[in-house]
Design a protein around this nucleic acid. Structure first.
Lengths: 195, 195
DNA sequence: TAATGAAACTAACGGTTATTAGTCTATTTC
DNA sequence: GAAATAGACTAATAACCGTTAGTTTCATTA
């Protein structure tokens, strides 16, 4: 792992925890194990690190939601749909890297239009569009009742997003949030899926 | 309006726009129209202002959602339910004071447990519990199909919360968000209300 | 072996920050 | 009218910030 990558990694941790303005270049350097001026061998300045991080976030979005690859095989039953959904959420809630990225984006979402747009993608559009495709596919197979797939995708993903953000903010509630999410998804399936 | 209140008001604006760490005491003083050291006649320091603001946010929550008063008369038809919901959202999206408070909380939610808890109340629990009561009342009157009111309240409020947060972040999309919200609420009513 | 270049270091800079001390002024209170 | 108080001011300070300049170290390459 190159020094540049270590800088990005430690900076993401610090920005997620204390925000851009709440993090000093010296803190970053200390975490990496070098002196602050040495950072300038790798980045033009503090803001340059920030921009590299937002580039990472954008790349990560493309890689995660840019293609249909990540959808994998379509669920063939209600139980399989529920299981795969829970699994995806559980991963997203507990994976440290993804958590940091989410907190970082939420913190810096108002910095400029670019941050705002990427935050919206990560928090709303990405998962929603993905589930719209999944539900659309399953609708063709008669597993979902006929309806607007995008609307249904919103209904199922929005409460999840909100509980995930609560878990980020109050990690003590993570497990409780997961239970609410499961209850919600089951209810969603009962209402919108065929028997 | 006392100087103390003017300080709180201007500080909320600045914190909503630039965050706590991105706002200097001097900026606050300038907006109020006094010199920075004069602030210390009204507050012990910068953090004291922050704490006064979070006290305000907590008080506002109690006043807005603490009693059943704000619910008013229960809607007696689908159209009335939709209209009152849209009206409430529209107010919340465009009222400058409420917007500032929301942005302030979102920005500072990770500061400590208290900020986290109040943010959750404002963003999730408050409106959800309120709609759980409304839906429960309307269910007794046979306007909603039998179901878990709290679960339904989550289904209807969560997507709204997400679109509102998007409108905060990307004000250009505010109107578009309102349209999505209306479509979502109509769909919700079609599914869960009786004819 | 000599030269090159990357990447670390020390030292120091100018600017900003939150805060304190002490002073002046005007309004209210006795 | 005198005293007291609230609330503004100026001046100053110590700490911290991001950044630059210049130097050293060391592995790679010609």
């Amino acid at each position: 792992m190159t020094t540049r990558d270590r800088i990005l990694d430690e900076t993401l941790t610090l920005f997620a925890e204390n925000g851009y303005d709440g993090t000093s270049v010296e803190q970053i350097a200390e975490k990496v194990g070098i002196k602050a001026p040495s950072l300038y061998n790798h980045f033009k300045g503090k803001e340059d690190i920030l921009n590299a991080l937002i580039d990472m976030a954008e790349a990560r979005y493309e890689e995660s939601f840019g293609s249909d690859k990540h959808i994998g095989r379509l669920p063939e039953s209600k139980e399989e749909f529920i299981r795969s959904a829970i699994e995806r959420v559980s991963f997203t809630v507990y994976d440290p890297m993804i958590r940091k990225m989410r907190k970082f984006l939420v913190r810096e979402q108002f910095r400029n239009e670019r941050f705002a747009a990427i935050t919206t993608k990560h928090q709303m559009d990405g998962v929603r569009d993905m589930y719209a495709r999944i539900i659309n596919g399953m609708m063709s197979k008669g597993l979902f009742k006929e309806d607007d797939p995008e609307l249904l995708a919103t209904e199922v993903t929005a409460p999840v997003a909100l509980w995930v953000s609560k878990a980020d903010r109050q990690p003590d509630c993570a497990q409780e949030s997961m239970e609410c999410i499961e209850r919600h998804i089951r209810h969603f399936c009962d209402v919108y899926m065929t028997e």
